[in-house]
Design a protein around this nucleic acid. Sequence first.
DNA 1: TAACAATTGAGATTGAATCTCAATATCAAA
DNA 2: TTTGATATTGAGATTCAATCTCAATTGTTA
Lengths: 149, 149
Amino acid sequence: MKKTGLPLEIFRNYLRKKGLKFTRERLIIFNGIISISKHFDADSLCEFLKGRNKNISRASVYRTIPLLVKSGLITESLRCNNKFSYELTFGRRHHDHMVCVKCGRIIEFYDARIEKLQNEVCKKRGFEPLRHKLGIKGYCRACLSKMRK
Amino acid sequence: MKKTGLPLEIFRNYLRKKGLKFTRERLIIFNGIISISKHFDADSLCEFLKGRNKNISRASVYRTIPLLVKSGLITESLRCNNKFSYELTFGRRHHDHMVCVKCGRIIEFYDARIEKLQNEVCKKRGFEPLRHKLGIKGYCRACLSKMRK
DNA sequence: TAACAATTGAGATTGAATCTCAATATCAAA
DNA sequence: TTTGATATTGAGATTCAATCTCAATTGTTA
Ligand SMILES: [Mn+2]
Ligand SMILES: [Mn+2]
Ligand SMILES: [Zn+2]
Ligand SMILES: [Zn+2]
């Protein structure tokens, strides 16, 4: 179990600022996401909580996720299996994703040069970028070597 | 109405190769997409056809789109309004997208340097890229100047 | 032309995501 | 601590894109 001090305070502050309430359910959802600490979707989060005898209704999970996004703790990342997928990004640097079409493995990467060129291209078009998503689909190293056999 | 000679042949050849039939409905759908010649989703395509008195069932439209993707004529591009969006890409160079979060405008761009760096990053990770999608959300030039007033 | 297999369309179904609303919990103020 | 205004919860209903079903129809090949 990770330490949750700072992010929890951020979440509480976000809720307070918006006149929203810090509930038992929201804390359980928050803790669940901290424990998973990797890509998840709303449904898998429900299942994860259920497995720990913390049954929170789907509705509450679906309602809390956007709050955590707005508070800056989690980010909508890939779309996997036709579901929105999220990841804990608080305190982590922005990154993009490679996804293996064979085994589903997700490889995170960051390349400052790509990021810089993106900003450059935006500037050239008079476009002010807010956020972006770069997803590369292909075959991961492990699947490639399996296939070559 | 654009000329449709070559792409139509490609579609017919794809169908033949797969033992599938070239039907009246598939031709109508094909022609519709050629006429639209910009981003579309399955539903808007149905509506477009209906407006031209070519009522094709949603099921057939939804069934034909993947065939056109596989035949290399159209590509799944952005996800807009929570629907898959496609565009005619036959004969066009690959490109990525900026989307204005204010007005929805779509700006297509291509930067060879970004593409090259992507390949480089993949190679470094032993990942063989098949396709990718880069979507940048932000404010377009027009919306920015409106907002500054 | 005949025979087989693929296709069509209307409507049913799926599944993620959202909504409804009565019962309940939170929290700031008293 | 108590109170009360207001936000939240959960079970189930609802939405909506996308997919599936299946009997009737059409395309293709011989
Ligand atoms: Mn990036
Ligand atoms: Mn690109
Ligand atoms: Zn793999
Ligand atoms: Zn705009």
